[in-house]
Design a protein around this nucleic acid. Structure first.
Lengths: 117, 117
DNA sequence: TGCATATCTGCAAAAACATGCAATCTTGAA
DNA sequence: TTCAAGATTGCATGTTTTTGCAGATATGCA
């Protein structure tokens, strides 16, 4: 298979993997710290087997890794880049709703994060 | 539906839309200039009806727009941000193959684009 | 008008995904 | 040991996507 097609195929596989609302929120939740299956299930309000299945998919493509601690299975991200795409995407959607561009959002953030308020 | 879920849903719909190798290459081809269906079909080596169907999907979600010129239907991107995600993704995949991080690629590019060679 | 080119639409068959639930496995603690 | 909690696995079922054509449209030109 020609190289450009291969790259497009691999990239589409990653997009497919994150093209599911539960998995997007899962990755979002794992952005800053590892969490176990039950916590995730409660936070996302999903049955535990479902969370486990999503995590198995992400694990198969090495987007997350598992670490055991007693009877808890703790998951963490292994490709922070991809979590970054999701955050970027969320910004994009939210900006779209408020009618703001990403640049406007950035400058608004900068404005509100400065000390003079 | 709670807001975070809505955002995750909308974002997953966009990811789904670009989670197809043909559509990734299509968007890549339209990055710098508009092109008509036949050119795209030839470049990507796909049957024209298939290209047309992909474009119809992208059009329905306003990722591209159509402009007619005689019997040609010229398509162009309307959300350069999303094309950006794809370019970013391609860099990521390619970097992964060479074992380089994105940062390393960037600095290599900077190095080779300077004048002292 | 009539023909060829460029593109779109519709539809059926195949493939890929998502979902719910029961059964199973593993570990810590009584 | 035995039990319960935390997770995973397997499978049947339902839903979406993808694919391959055939046929329909629309446009420019002889």
């Amino acid at each position: 298979m020609p190289n450009r097609e291969m790259v497009a195929k691999e990239l589409s596989d990653i997009f497919k993997l994150i093209a599911h609302p539960d998995r997007i929120r899962l990755i979002e939740e794992l952005r800053f710290e590892e969490k176990d299956v039950n916590s995730l299930a409660q936070i996302l309000n999903l049955p535990a087997p479902r969370v486990s299945q999503h995590l198995a998919l992400l694990r198969a493509s090495r987007l997350v890794e598992e670490r055991r601690d007693g009877r808890h299975h703790l998951y963490h991200l292994t490709q922070p880049e991809i979590a970054g795409w999701i955050i970027e995407g969320i910004d994009f959607i939210e900006g779209r709703h408020t009618g703001l561009t990403k640049t406007q959002i950035k400058s608004a953030r900068k404005h509100w994060s400065t000390a003079h308020h």
